[in-house]
Computed example of a mutant assay.
Amino acid sequence: MISRHVDRDLDVEVRAALHIGLYELLFSDGTPNRAAVASAVELAKPNLGFKLVNAVLRRVIDDDGGKLRLPADDTPDGAAIRHSHPLWLVKRWWKWLGPNPTRALLAAGNRPTELVLRVNTLRTGPLGEDGAPAGGIVVPGEPFDDALPEARRVTGGLDVLADPGWREGHYVAMSRGSMRAARAVDPQPGERVLDLCAAPGGKTTHMAALMGGEGTIVAIEKHGGRARALRRTCERVGAGNVEVISGDALEVELAAGSFDRVLLDAPCSGLGTLASHPDLRWRVQERDLPELGRLQGRLLEVAQRAVKPGGRLVYSVCTLNPGEERLPEGKITRLWPHRDGTDGFYISAVGG
């Protein structure tokens, strides 16, 4: 839309002001047109391009008779503009899923995500028959998924990081998709479990809780800062059976067949999380995908060597891209934002 009215490069702050102004004009029903224009103009100042911002936005309004219209989403090009997703991604989903599922998926990417908490039974004690922690500790939200009795959906506002319950480790905020990945591992008390690429630790500490704190989880994290944060998370939630190793999973020495269960929650494009990370759609580039796929394959080889014969191996990615799917012979779970109301996930479990 900008290119219809501007035929030259724009300063970053001017283009950003135009983007915000156009968004308000197109999507914000509660903002009068002149207020949207005035706000965008102020944002562009002191850059002299504020005059261009004013002219372009007023011309957009005048050209459409004051009634702004987005293109129909009956083609990938129109859908990309209407739903604010990169064209390369829309084309991929359109080819893979078809028009109707793609439109539904794009719409879901622009809706607010649910806030889900996982009751941390390492701190609260086991859940009773009524689903409440037996120790009487109250965790915000309500049970809503029989397959995830530890999950609580919160309606209304909750400042998680300021809540004493979070600081005391009574719960962890994580998506249902992430919980399903940890559940797929099905770790048992006393077992030896490997979690490759472990930070930020939601799945790691979930598995620790499922094991009742008994046994060992070796959690490998490549980035030093994230590894330190993972240790703090384990301490907060009482996951004393987690051993955090700061290192590259491709280089850490792991004895072959030494783990009962292995979770590879692989680095991925994250295309299943666009509602909770809206900026990601513009940061991920199509050219990044082949290298990600090669990394996932190498990490999977490490995971396959580490799991003992007959053990369980789970591969998961929070993306919606068939090129990043692995272990097609496993028990596969796919979660879709537009169908399941949570992050998009691919989970495959083999053995065990």
Rank of each mutant, 00 (worst) to 15 (best):
R183S: 11
V317Y: 04
R231I: 05
L25H: 00
N47D: 15
P76Q: 06
D62M: 11
T333S: 14
P189F: 01
L43C: 05
M174V: 04
L52W: 00
V160T: 12
G224H: 13
V317G: 03
P133M: 00
G225W: 02
P143F: 13
R8T: 04
L105N: 06
P189T: 00
M211T: 04
S3Q: 14
N120R: 11
M174R: 08
T233M: 14
S28E: 15
A266T: 00
P86R: 00
E168S: 15
D130P: 04
A303Y: 10
L210Q: 13
A16M: 13
V193K: 09
S348C: 04
R69S: 15
G21R: 04
L158Y: 06
D195Q: 01
E13G: 10
A198C: 02
C197H: 03
V317I: 12
C268V: 02
L161E: 13
G131E: 07
A38G: 08
E324P: 10
R192A: 10
E191K: 09
I137Q: 14
L48M: 07
F50V: 05
A104N: 13
D130L: 09
L289R: 06
E24C: 14
G78V: 06
L289M: 07
G201Y: 02
E251N: 11
L196E: 00
H223C: 02
W94E: 02
I2R: 14
S348E: 11
G257R: 13
V244P: 01
V116G: 05
E325F: 15
V119I: 14
R123I: 12
P278C: 11
E325L: 08
P322T: 02
G240K: 13
V185C: 06
G310Q: 09
V242F: 09
